[in-house]
Design a protein around this nucleic acid. Structure first.
Lengths: 198, 198
DNA sequence: CAGGGAGGTTAGCGGTCGTTAACCTGGAGG
DNA sequence: CCTCCAGGTTAACGACCGCTAACCTCCCTG
């Protein structure tokens, strides 16, 4: 998942620090000078890499949505034989990995969407919708009693549950990463099960 | 829950509209002129009611946290006899009512906390912590196998689930309010149950 | 009926922020 | 060795925004 070598491109450095700062203080709460300072250059030097501040946010949000969707599609394709239960577990696992490893991005994901230009926002929304629909299909295979609207609501709610990781202790004080992942996984399955008749 | 009559005070109007705007575009993304326009006065007229823009956000966030905590405490006191299961159901119900009826406030609640002055932020955090601890105690009575850190993580996660309502269809297209509340309630209970051994 | 405060108004100041302009510099390539 | 460009720098502009100042006008009260 890294670029080519282990070192980050200046461009990737900028995106990473911008994501962190946007998540911490909000898009409007961070100045370009701060972003520049975070990567060791100052202020307008950023404009050698991005056409503007908006473009950084757009690239981050489109990247997040695309990454989630692509990961889910890959899991669907690699799941021949395991059955829908195993596939749902795989989707949950993938989402949890993302939520635990890229907390700032998860935060941005549903917080700063409205700051995008119309075209970018529509693209992100489309990617998000496809991701949701993919989940809805799998969930309804596992729990056939769920109607489609109910399944969709349930999926959104489980996303809320899984995306709660930024609120779990600023430093991962509580249990270790593995235990947290397991807990979230069990709770997600339990929530889906209770959404259906079970 | 209204003031004295049915009509809102100018001050309450302002708070309500400010909450909506802050939730939609973020604290820094809304200007005082817009807030004023939303209540029919323009710009600096707001300063007859609040010492500054920050004060509006502070009052909103402190109000939210206090309202949640007080509601929960009331439910605890009124629950003599029902047993912990009924009490947990009552807490869940109260939180769902709040999440469904005051979506903008729920959004603000965990999004703009960092924009507060230190003292206000500490107050809000303290109220939030008390609210969480109250839940943790009740949850551990219902599911004694849960360790305290696990129960706390589970509570945060269930909050994430319940607070997902802003993402469920901008207009309540899907099921009706009652059905949504029921669904969220079942999912929350299922999530707690699966967090414990069940 | 005088007067005064509550609750508006508009004009404008001061600071911040995104962006552009103009300039500099080290290192790769012919 | 000259050139040139990628990737910086600082200065500065223009817009916007929070807030204050100064002023106006009802309406309530003694």
């Amino acid at each position: 998942m890294a670029t080519r070598t282990d070192a980050l491109t200046r461009r990737e450095q900028i995106l990473k620090e911008a994501a962190r700062l946007f998540a911490e203080r909000g898009f409007h709460g961070v100045g370009v000078d701060e972003i520049g300072a975070a990567v060791g250059i100052s202020g307008p030097g950023l404009y050698r890499h991005f056409p503007g501040k908006d473009a950084m946010l757009a690239e981050l949000l489109v990247g997040i949505s695309g990454q989630l969707l692509n990961g889910a599609r890959r899991r669907v394709q690699e799941s021949d034989g395991g059955g829908p239960e195993a596939l749902l577990d795989s989707l949950i696992e993938g989402h949890i990995d993302f939520a635990l490893d890229d907390r700032p991005l998860i935060t941005l994901h549903d917080r700063e969407l409205d700051r995008l230009r119309d075209s970018d926002r529509k693209l992100v929304r489309q990617l998000q919708r496809q991701y949701v629909e993919l989940w809805v299909e799998v969930v309804r295979e596992v729990y056939p009693d769920l109607t489609e609207p109910t399944a969709r609501s349930a999926v959104h709610s489980v996303f809320g549950l899984l995306n709660s990781t930024p609120h779990l202790g600023r430093a991962g004080v509580l249990p270790g990463r593995g235990a947290t992942a397991e807990l979230l996984h069990r709770m997600a399955r339990g929530a889906f099960g209770s959404a259906a008749g079970v």
